[in-house]
Design a protein around this nucleic acid. Structure first.
Lengths: 205, 205
DNA sequence: CGTGAACCTGACTAAATGGTCAATTATCCG
DNA sequence: CGGATAATTGACCATTTAGTCAGGTTCACG
């Protein structure tokens, strides 16, 4: 079945593939690729193990499917930066959107984190292809804004890295954040305020 | 041997334990705890597998040993903040030191990252104990400096998180940084400049 | 309703992996 | 030197785990 070229999927196929991917997302994002087992995935999906293999040919295929399938969603906020908007607003909106994604989709954040940390074997072409181009476009835009004096000057690549690292930190290192903050804190609310303040000071002209 | 109470270690014991821990650091930091195998560790250490077990009772024990053994080194820069120094200088020095650690000890950075991401089963007590206290002390100091008007006001916990996330990003997500920057960049040199600029603007009074 | 395709599963395999142990070799020290 | 202790290892075990397969069940649709 999984070696079907591109016949349209049946209702059950669409359904079960989705269910499996959801279970796999939970498993992979909790334990990493090697740490997650097909049994876990099957369990989380409520299907038998052979049935999982009926829909996906291998553990690897599930993983690749997840990564590429979620990439668009993950990069959407970057694409959404409006070249005709107010520079500072656009950056702050991007930061906000990225932080919201960490809050609302921590599993996805961790999935990507695990993959990049282990050397991104399933993402290398994308990292140095599509992602790199996307970043390059944004860098060009940011540099233009800086040239026009509408944004304080910093190295744009590293500005982007800073946004990625700080927002995803709250999802990927949640345990640490919780442990250090202790109870009675709303990490994402506080982080939102902090990041807003921080990027305003850094980028205001 | 590994169940010896606290007899002094022989020369060979000291040596081989060290060699094993180095091999394990490489293995764990590359593939995570579940992804690393004893065979890999033995191979990297140049010892036979049973011999590895002669020095450490289990894979878990090696891992725990590594984590706790490296913790002091990892937290040293935070401890080194001088309450009597110039506030901004102290923070910038801390940032610099943390960035240098990511550059010089990327394996250690990844080891901790993997551990925290999988829920820190071997670090929970430390995270909410010693680490938390250390952070709390630093937070108090930072707040005092802010009260005295010697540092711009931001939420100190999140200031610390920002330093952790941004510096460790360059070690943990090295593949992504390299892929996005492309050749002809010195990530750590650029990051040093960027972070200096960033924290100056954020914290200058 | 009937039939062929789609869907599902119990029982299995092969390989990987954490860990053990009896037996051998190296080292230390009186 | 010689015996005791430390260090080492080949061969092994039990479990886990990715993946298979023959055969059974359910579904879509004419």
């Amino acid at each position: 079945m999984s070696d079907n070229p591109d016949q349209p999927l049946t209702r059950i196929q669409r359904q079960n593939r989705q269910i499996i991917l959801q279970g796999a997302l939970t498993a992979f994002s909790t334990n990493g690729f090697r740490g997650a087992t097909i049994d876990q995935i099957a369990e989380a999906a409520g299907l038998s193990k052979p049935n999982v293999f009926y829909y996906f040919g291998s553990k690897d295929e599930i993983h690749r499917n997840l990564l590429t399938g979620l990439l668009d969603m993950w990069l959407a906020p970057l694409v959404a930066i409006n070249p005709d908007g107010q520079p500072l607003d656009e950056v702050l909106t991007y930061v906000r959107a990225k932080l919201d994604m960490s809050r609302d989709y921590p599993r996805e954040s961790r999935l990507f984190a695990y993959e990049v940390m282990r050397g991104a074997p399933h993402l290398t072409e994308i990292l140095s292809g599509r992602l790199r181009n996307l970043v390059e476009d944004t860098v060009t835009l940011l540099r233009r804004w800086m040239d026009e004096g509408r944004l304080a000057r910093v190295e744009p690549h590293h500005l982007i890295f800073s946004i990625w690292s700080m927002t995803q930190h709250y999802a990927d290192f949640e345990v640490q954040v919780q442990a250090v903050l202790g109870p009675g804190h709303d990490p994402y609310a506080e982080a939102g305020e902090f990041l807003d303040q921080m990027y305003r000071r850094m980028l205001a002209v």
